[in-house]
Design a protein around this nucleic acid. Sequence first.
DNA 1: AACTCGTGGGC
DNA 2: TGCCCAAGAGT
Length: 311
Amino acid sequence: MFNLQNSHELHHRINTWYQHHARDLPWRRADCTAWGVMVSEFMLQQTPVNRVLPVWEEWMRRWPTPASLAAEDSAEAVRAWGRLGYPRRAQRLHGAAVAITKHHDGEVPADYDELLELPGVGAYTAAAITVFAFGRRATVIDTNIRRVHARAVMGKALPHKHLNAAETNLAEELMPQNTAVSCVWNASVMELGALVCVAKNPRCEQCPLEDICAWVKEGKPQAEYTPTGQSWHGTDRQLRGAMMAVLRAAHAPVPRELLTDFSTDITVPDALKVPVQDLRKLDSSQEQIDRCYSGLLKDKLAKERKDRVSL
DNA sequence: AACTCGTGGGC
DNA sequence: TGCCCAAGAGT
Protein backbone atom coordinates (compact mmCIF):
# COMPACT_ATOMS: atom_id res chain seq x y z
CA MET A 1 0.00 0.00 0.00
CA PHE A 2 1.12 3.50 -0.81
CA ASN A 3 2.48 5.43 2.17
CA LEU A 4 -0.20 7.93 3.07
CA GLN A 5 2.43 10.17 4.67
CA ASN A 6 3.42 11.02 1.11
CA SER A 7 -0.06 12.04 0.02
CA HIS A 8 1.16 15.56 -0.77
CA GLU A 9 3.31 13.96 -3.45
CA LEU A 10 0.14 12.49 -4.95
CA HIS A 11 -1.60 15.85 -4.76
CA HIS A 12 1.20 17.65 -6.53
CA ARG A 13 1.63 15.10 -9.30
CA ILE A 14 -2.03 14.63 -10.10
CA ASN A 15 -2.98 18.29 -9.82
CA THR A 16 -0.08 19.25 -12.10
CA TRP A 17 -1.10 16.57 -14.59
CA TYR A 18 -4.61 18.00 -14.54
CA GLN A 19 -3.37 21.50 -15.40
CA HIS A 20 -2.03 20.12 -18.66
CA HIS A 21 -4.53 17.40 -19.59
CA ALA A 22 -7.95 18.40 -18.31
CA ARG A 23 -10.67 18.43 -20.96
CA ASP A 24 -12.33 21.73 -21.68
CA LEU A 25 -15.84 20.72 -20.65
CA PRO A 26 -18.53 23.42 -20.67
CA TRP A 27 -19.68 22.70 -17.12
CA ARG A 28 -16.12 23.32 -15.91
CA ARG A 29 -15.91 26.82 -17.31
CA ALA A 30 -15.96 29.77 -14.94
CA ASP A 31 -19.19 31.12 -16.41
CA CYS A 32 -21.14 27.91 -15.84
CA THR A 33 -23.88 28.27 -13.24
CA ALA A 34 -24.46 25.93 -10.32
CA TRP A 35 -27.57 24.76 -12.15
CA GLY A 36 -25.42 23.93 -15.17
CA VAL A 37 -23.12 21.87 -12.98
CA MET A 38 -26.10 20.14 -11.41
CA VAL A 39 -27.62 19.23 -14.77
CA SER A 40 -24.29 17.86 -15.94
CA GLU A 41 -23.94 15.72 -12.82
CA PHE A 42 -27.38 14.17 -13.34
CA MET A 43 -26.62 13.43 -16.97
CA LEU A 44 -23.21 12.01 -16.19
CA GLN A 45 -24.60 9.42 -13.79
CA GLN A 46 -23.65 6.20 -15.59
CA THR A 47 -23.38 7.98 -18.94
CA PRO A 48 -20.16 8.89 -20.84
CA VAL A 49 -19.19 12.54 -21.32
CA ASN A 50 -19.33 12.49 -25.11
CA ARG A 51 -22.97 11.48 -25.15
CA VAL A 52 -23.91 14.05 -22.52
CA LEU A 53 -22.35 17.08 -24.22
CA PRO A 54 -24.96 17.83 -26.93
CA VAL A 55 -27.92 17.11 -24.64
CA TRP A 56 -26.51 19.32 -21.91
CA GLU A 57 -26.09 22.19 -24.39
CA GLU A 58 -29.72 21.84 -25.45
CA TRP A 59 -30.96 21.73 -21.88
CA MET A 60 -29.00 24.83 -20.92
CA ARG A 61 -30.40 26.67 -23.90
CA ARG A 62 -33.94 25.60 -23.13
CA TRP A 63 -33.92 25.61 -19.33
CA PRO A 64 -31.21 28.00 -18.10
CA THR A 65 -32.58 28.03 -14.55
CA PRO A 66 -34.26 25.57 -12.18
CA ALA A 67 -37.47 27.62 -12.34
CA SER A 68 -37.63 27.37 -16.13
CA LEU A 69 -37.52 23.58 -15.96
CA ALA A 70 -39.89 23.45 -13.01
CA ALA A 71 -42.47 25.38 -15.06
CA GLU A 72 -42.57 22.57 -17.65
CA ASP A 73 -44.34 19.27 -17.49
CA SER A 74 -41.98 16.47 -16.50
CA ALA A 75 -42.85 14.71 -19.75
CA GLU A 76 -40.93 17.40 -21.63
CA ALA A 77 -37.89 16.68 -19.49
CA VAL A 78 -38.11 13.00 -20.36
CA ARG A 79 -38.45 13.81 -24.07
CA ALA A 80 -35.54 16.23 -24.00
CA TRP A 81 -33.53 13.55 -22.22
CA GLY A 82 -33.65 11.67 -25.50
CA ARG A 83 -31.58 8.51 -25.60
CA LEU A 84 -29.27 9.29 -22.70
CA GLY A 85 -30.68 6.31 -20.85
CA TYR A 86 -32.12 5.85 -17.36
CA PRO A 87 -34.99 8.25 -18.08
CA ARG A 88 -35.99 8.37 -14.41
CA ARG A 89 -32.99 10.66 -14.02
CA ALA A 90 -34.88 13.19 -16.14
CA GLN A 91 -37.90 12.89 -13.89
CA ARG A 92 -35.78 13.27 -10.78
CA LEU A 93 -33.96 16.27 -12.21
CA HIS A 94 -37.31 17.85 -12.96
CA GLY A 95 -38.40 17.02 -9.42
CA ALA A 96 -35.23 18.58 -8.05
CA ALA A 97 -35.91 21.74 -10.07
CA VAL A 98 -39.40 21.91 -8.59
CA ALA A 99 -38.03 21.47 -5.07
CA ILE A 100 -35.36 24.14 -5.62
CA THR A 101 -37.95 26.56 -6.93
CA LYS A 102 -40.30 25.84 -4.08
CA HIS A 103 -37.96 25.51 -1.12
CA HIS A 104 -34.71 27.27 -2.08
CA ASP A 105 -35.89 30.45 -3.72
CA GLY A 106 -34.90 29.09 -7.12
CA GLU A 107 -31.20 28.79 -6.23
CA VAL A 108 -29.30 25.51 -6.18
CA PRO A 109 -28.38 25.02 -2.50
CA ALA A 110 -24.68 25.08 -1.68
CA ASP A 111 -25.05 22.93 1.41
CA TYR A 112 -24.28 19.23 1.11
CA ASP A 113 -27.10 18.07 3.35
CA GLU A 114 -29.65 20.24 1.59
CA LEU A 115 -28.50 18.91 -1.77
CA LEU A 116 -28.86 15.38 -0.47
CA GLU A 117 -32.54 16.01 0.16
CA LEU A 118 -33.21 16.63 -3.52
CA PRO A 119 -34.58 13.76 -5.62
CA GLY A 120 -31.90 12.03 -7.65
CA VAL A 121 -29.09 13.47 -5.55
CA GLY A 122 -27.05 10.91 -3.65
CA ALA A 123 -23.71 11.09 -1.89
CA TYR A 124 -21.72 11.48 -5.09
CA THR A 125 -23.86 14.14 -6.74
CA ALA A 126 -24.22 16.17 -3.54
CA ALA A 127 -20.45 16.23 -3.09
CA ALA A 128 -19.82 16.98 -6.76
CA ILE A 129 -22.15 19.99 -6.76
CA THR A 130 -20.69 21.22 -3.46
CA VAL A 131 -17.19 21.08 -4.89
CA PHE A 132 -17.54 21.88 -8.59
CA ALA A 133 -20.30 24.46 -8.38
CA PHE A 134 -19.46 26.18 -5.10
CA GLY A 135 -15.77 25.50 -4.49
CA ARG A 136 -16.42 24.07 -1.05
CA ARG A 137 -14.54 21.23 0.59
CA ALA A 138 -16.20 17.83 0.22
CA THR A 139 -15.01 14.35 -0.62
CA VAL A 140 -16.09 13.28 -4.08
CA ILE A 141 -16.15 9.53 -4.65
CA ASP A 142 -17.11 8.18 -8.04
CA THR A 143 -16.16 5.10 -10.02
CA ASN A 144 -13.07 6.80 -11.48
CA ILE A 145 -11.78 8.01 -8.13
CA ARG A 146 -12.39 4.64 -6.54
CA ARG A 147 -10.41 2.92 -9.25
CA VAL A 148 -7.45 5.31 -8.97
CA HIS A 149 -7.38 4.85 -5.20
CA ALA A 150 -7.64 1.09 -5.54
CA ARG A 151 -4.68 0.93 -7.89
CA ALA A 152 -2.32 3.73 -6.93
CA VAL A 153 -2.80 3.42 -3.17
CA MET A 154 -4.13 -0.07 -2.43
CA GLY A 155 -2.37 -1.98 -5.21
CA LYS A 156 -5.60 -3.61 -6.40
CA ALA A 157 -6.83 -3.88 -9.98
CA LEU A 158 -10.35 -2.79 -9.05
CA PRO A 159 -12.11 -1.29 -6.05
CA HIS A 160 -14.48 -3.39 -3.97
CA LYS A 161 -17.76 -4.31 -5.53
CA HIS A 162 -19.59 -1.83 -3.33
CA LEU A 163 -18.34 1.38 -1.79
CA ASN A 164 -17.46 0.61 1.83
CA ALA A 165 -16.31 2.49 4.91
CA ALA A 166 -12.65 1.70 4.30
CA GLU A 167 -12.75 3.25 0.84
CA THR A 168 -14.61 6.28 2.13
CA ASN A 169 -12.10 6.74 4.94
CA LEU A 170 -9.21 6.46 2.52
CA ALA A 171 -10.74 9.05 0.21
CA GLU A 172 -11.16 11.43 3.13
CA GLU A 173 -7.61 10.88 4.33
CA LEU A 174 -6.27 11.64 0.87
CA MET A 175 -8.15 14.94 0.63
CA PRO A 176 -5.89 18.01 0.71
CA GLN A 177 -6.59 20.21 3.71
CA ASN A 178 -6.63 23.44 1.73
CA THR A 179 -10.08 23.98 0.26
CA ALA A 180 -9.01 25.32 -3.14
CA VAL A 181 -6.45 22.56 -3.57
CA SER A 182 -9.00 19.94 -2.52
CA CYS A 183 -11.42 21.07 -5.25
CA VAL A 184 -8.76 20.64 -7.93
CA TRP A 185 -7.80 17.32 -6.36
CA ASN A 186 -11.34 15.95 -6.67
CA ALA A 187 -11.52 16.96 -10.32
CA SER A 188 -8.00 15.75 -11.04
CA VAL A 189 -8.34 12.23 -9.67
CA MET A 190 -11.64 11.82 -11.49
CA GLU A 191 -10.11 13.02 -14.75
CA LEU A 192 -7.11 10.74 -14.34
CA GLY A 193 -9.45 7.80 -13.87
CA ALA A 194 -11.51 8.81 -16.89
CA LEU A 195 -8.61 9.38 -19.29
CA VAL A 196 -5.62 7.33 -18.11
CA CYS A 197 -6.41 4.95 -15.26
CA VAL A 198 -9.33 3.47 -17.17
CA ALA A 199 -10.99 0.16 -16.35
CA LYS A 200 -9.65 -1.81 -19.28
CA ASN A 201 -6.18 -1.37 -20.78
CA PRO A 202 -5.08 1.54 -18.57
CA ARG A 203 -2.51 3.83 -20.20
CA CYS A 204 0.06 3.55 -17.44
CA GLU A 205 2.83 4.98 -19.63
CA GLN A 206 0.91 8.27 -19.62
CA CYS A 207 0.27 8.23 -15.88
CA PRO A 208 2.04 10.73 -13.61
CA LEU A 209 1.99 8.08 -10.86
CA GLU A 210 3.53 5.22 -12.79
CA ASP A 211 6.72 5.08 -10.72
CA ILE A 212 4.91 5.23 -7.38
CA CYS A 213 1.70 3.34 -8.19
CA ALA A 214 1.16 0.47 -5.75
CA TRP A 215 -0.59 -1.63 -8.41
CA VAL A 216 2.30 -1.24 -10.88
CA LYS A 217 4.78 -2.03 -8.10
CA GLU A 218 2.97 -5.31 -7.44
CA GLY A 219 3.09 -6.27 -11.10
CA LYS A 220 -0.50 -5.31 -11.90
CA PRO A 221 -2.22 -8.28 -10.23
CA GLN A 222 -5.58 -9.27 -11.68
CA ALA A 223 -8.90 -8.39 -10.10
CA GLU A 224 -10.07 -10.64 -7.28
CA TYR A 225 -13.51 -10.92 -8.79
CA THR A 226 -15.17 -10.60 -12.17
CA PRO A 227 -17.89 -7.98 -12.35
CA THR A 228 -21.32 -9.38 -13.16
CA GLY A 229 -22.49 -8.04 -16.47
CA GLN A 230 -25.71 -6.11 -16.94
CA SER A 231 -28.11 -8.26 -18.91
CA TRP A 232 -29.98 -6.68 -21.76
CA HIS A 233 -31.12 -8.84 -24.66
CA GLY A 234 -34.54 -10.35 -24.10
CA THR A 235 -35.01 -8.63 -20.76
CA ASP A 236 -37.64 -6.27 -19.49
CA ARG A 237 -35.14 -3.45 -19.87
CA GLN A 238 -34.83 -3.92 -23.60
CA LEU A 239 -38.57 -4.04 -24.02
CA ARG A 240 -39.16 -1.04 -21.79
CA GLY A 241 -36.50 0.87 -23.69
CA ALA A 242 -38.38 0.26 -26.92
CA MET A 243 -41.63 1.37 -25.32
CA MET A 244 -39.93 4.50 -24.04
CA ALA A 245 -38.78 5.34 -27.57
CA VAL A 246 -42.40 5.22 -28.70
CA LEU A 247 -43.59 7.36 -25.82
CA ARG A 248 -40.90 9.98 -26.32
CA ALA A 249 -41.84 10.33 -29.95
CA ALA A 250 -45.54 10.58 -29.22
CA HIS A 251 -46.97 13.89 -28.09
CA ALA A 252 -50.36 12.43 -27.36
CA PRO A 253 -51.44 9.37 -25.39
CA VAL A 254 -50.48 6.20 -27.23
CA PRO A 255 -52.87 3.25 -27.57
CA ARG A 256 -51.79 0.23 -25.65
CA GLU A 257 -51.66 -1.80 -28.85
CA LEU A 258 -48.94 0.40 -30.25
CA LEU A 259 -46.73 -0.44 -27.30
CA THR A 260 -47.61 -4.08 -26.96
CA ASP A 261 -48.53 -5.53 -30.32
CA PHE A 262 -45.48 -5.50 -32.47
CA SER A 263 -45.32 -9.18 -33.31
CA THR A 264 -45.87 -8.47 -36.99
CA ASP A 265 -46.22 -5.26 -38.94
CA ILE A 266 -46.96 -2.17 -36.97
CA THR A 267 -48.69 0.75 -38.53
CA VAL A 268 -47.27 3.88 -37.05
CA PRO A 269 -48.89 7.20 -37.81
CA ASP A 270 -46.62 9.43 -39.86
CA ALA A 271 -46.74 12.04 -37.16
CA LEU A 272 -45.25 9.49 -34.82
CA LYS A 273 -41.64 9.17 -35.84
CA VAL A 274 -40.70 6.03 -34.00
CA PRO A 275 -37.69 3.74 -34.42
CA VAL A 276 -39.93 0.73 -34.94
CA GLN A 277 -37.03 -1.39 -36.10
CA ASP A 278 -36.14 -1.66 -32.43
CA LEU A 279 -39.55 -3.07 -31.69
CA ARG A 280 -39.64 -5.56 -34.53
CA LYS A 281 -36.43 -7.18 -33.39
CA LEU A 282 -37.94 -8.06 -30.06
CA ASP A 283 -39.35 -11.47 -29.30
CA SER A 284 -41.19 -11.05 -26.05
CA SER A 285 -43.90 -12.97 -24.30
CA GLN A 286 -47.24 -11.33 -23.60
CA GLU A 287 -46.52 -11.74 -19.92
CA GLN A 288 -43.31 -9.81 -20.28
CA ILE A 289 -45.03 -7.12 -22.28
CA ASP A 290 -47.71 -6.74 -19.63
CA ARG A 291 -45.08 -6.54 -16.93
CA CYS A 292 -43.24 -3.76 -18.74
CA TYR A 293 -46.43 -1.95 -19.52
CA SER A 294 -47.40 -2.04 -15.86
CA GLY A 295 -43.89 -1.01 -14.96
CA LEU A 296 -44.15 2.08 -17.09
CA LEU A 297 -47.36 3.01 -15.35
CA LYS A 298 -45.91 2.23 -11.97
CA ASP A 299 -42.86 4.36 -12.63
CA LYS A 300 -45.11 7.21 -13.60
CA LEU A 301 -43.32 7.38 -16.88
CA ALA A 302 -46.86 6.86 -17.98
CA LYS A 303 -50.02 7.80 -16.21
CA GLU A 304 -53.79 8.00 -16.17
CA ARG A 305 -55.94 5.71 -18.28
CA LYS A 306 -54.57 2.24 -18.63
CA ASP A 307 -55.49 1.72 -22.27
CA ARG A 308 -53.62 4.77 -23.43
CA VAL A 309 -50.22 5.83 -22.24
CA SER A 310 -48.26 9.05 -22.32
CA LEU A 311 -45.18 10.39 -20.60
C1' DA B 1 -26.99 -6.06 0.70
C1' DA B 2 -28.10 -7.01 -3.65
C1' DC B 3 -30.91 -5.56 -7.54
C1' DT B 4 -32.79 -2.73 -10.84
C1' DC B 5 -32.84 1.01 -13.91
C1' DG B 6 -31.18 2.58 -20.65
C1' DT B 7 -28.10 3.39 -24.07
C1' DG B 8 -24.29 3.15 -27.22
C1' DG B 9 -19.18 3.28 -28.10
C1' DG B 10 -14.99 0.58 -27.78
C1' DC B 11 -12.48 -3.46 -28.09
C1' DT C 1 -19.65 -10.31 -32.83
C1' DG C 2 -20.83 -10.05 -28.22
C1' DC C 3 -19.36 -8.31 -23.96
C1' DC C 4 -17.80 -4.59 -20.98
C1' DC C 5 -18.69 -0.50 -18.85
C1' DA C 6 -19.81 4.37 -18.05
C1' DA C 7 -19.10 11.51 -13.10
C1' DG C 8 -25.05 6.60 -9.30
C1' DA C 9 -29.55 6.54 -6.99
C1' DG C 10 -33.33 4.26 -4.87
C1' DT C 11 -35.24 0.43 -2.83
